[in-house]
Design a protein around this nucleic acid. Structure first.
Lengths: 230, 230
DNA sequence: GGATGCCCATTTGTGCACAAATGGGCTGCG
DNA sequence: CGCAGCCCATTTGTGCACAAATGGGCATCC
């Protein structure tokens, strides 16, 4: 019997997922700012592959609304204005609540540990806020929250919408539409409140807290944008 | 000033969309049965293109969960059992109702005409039911219903889940888990009831009627599957 | 001087040949 | 006779060269 050592060479699918997640994260953390052109050739070179498989990744990102390719011109990171995202945010509110209603599940030991770790990091961040690290912590927290439902299609859709909209938050920070220090405190409260609800086993309340924070975060960005115009 | 005649030659993007929708429809109407292998070379030949752009279409279909590619083996239409679709159906129920709550819009003249046409065809189908034509009418009706909300992300997500699950209905007909003639009558009632709600301008009720029919349809398929086992 | 049309560098899209991977059949050994 | 291992046809995945398309710069003409 032949024992195949696990992934001596990375499979095509794994590599696709890895590169896809990497570029997606760069877009969400504004390493690639909205409007920036992504060179197929440069990216292919960076990841040590040819344009063909890289184009597959870009095509996926395009279907997710994160980039847009134009023949003869280039591939660009999509831009977004807070005013245009109302529809998406309203939908995210509803989906957040669904997480607490549709097949909710309590965290297992591993997930509990991740929640605790995020709480710790959140408190550490209060002393010296850093936009990018904060955004990354926000992503990690979101990816934990989505695991509070067993409904896989709901998870997938929720993730999709999250990655479409999360950049606007970091963008608002850099545009001074919202205050980073305030946001870190709000986030820390959110994490603690949700953990407390989870400790009580009240998954629906945890979902409603998340919903409320998504809504208020949107309102703060909207208000900041309007103030800035005036 | 140069007047560019509109699409003398089809753009790459339009061609992609056209082929994608065509293959998706073939899968949903069971022209390509679950489990069937799709030959990249044959499909590329049929559409008069090379494998490269066709593979792009297949990759999109794979991200939508309609096919699955395996290196060295082939690309296969995904199979699905009614028992595994509970999560997806429960989510579809919620999204259907959201259509009536999140930015609902009354039909314009064109959409009204489409609803009337579908009602007419539905009644014509009562006399001589045909599974494939019925499934097609079902798709058309769904695509009209989704236009009752202005929330574009909600539309997109709803469509995605619909195309993932709609095959199971036609599959249940062929497996005699549900009765085609009964289904045609139920469908005709659904169309009429929803049109009546729309005539009253009651979009939320229209959505709830749709929700109820999705749920009952699922229950009938589930029951049929269980009876068949017994 | 201004506008118009052409040329060309740049970038995405396509076709094709080859690499990688899989499964089935065949062959040879015990 | 059974089974283990190899070979090869088939299919998806990759690399690469070229086609298509775009925009900007430049020359030319009015």
């Amino acid at each position: 019997m032949i024992i195949k050592r696990p992934q001596a060479t990375e499979s095509a699918r794994n590599r696709f997922d890895r590169i896809h997640e990497e570029i997606r994260m760069r877009i969400c953390l504004l390493d690639y700012a909205p409007g920036k052109r992504l060179s197929e050739e440069a990216l292919a070179g960076e990841f040590g592959i040819s344009r063909t498989p890289l184009r597959r990744v870009l095509a996926r990102l395009e279907s997710e609304g994160l980039v847009h390719s134009m023949h003869g011109i280039g591939t660009f990171v999509t831009d977004l204005e807070i005013e245009e995202l109302g529809q998406t945010f309203r939908l995210r509110l509803e989906l957040a609540e669904l997480t607490g209603r549709l097949e909710p599940v309590l965290p297992d030991a591993a997930l509990w540990q991740e929640f605790r770790a995020i709480s710790t990091q959140s408190k550490a961040m209060l002393a010296e806020p850093d936009p990018r690290r904060f955004a990354k912590l926000n992503v990690d927290f979101f990816l934990c929250l989505v695991r509070l439902t067993d409904n896989e299609p709901l998870r997938e859709i929720t993730r999709r919408l999250y990655f479409q909209t999360t950049r606007i938050w970091l963008k608002s920070v850099f545009a001074s539409h919202i205050n980073l220090r305030d946001e870190t405190h709000v986030f820390d409260r959110e994490v603690d409140d949700i953990i407390r609800a989870l400790e009580l086993g009240d998954l629906h309340s945890a979902a409603l807290i998340q919903r409320a924070h998504i809504s208020m975060s949107f309102q703060r960005m909207l208000a900041g944008s309007r103030n800035h115009e005036a």
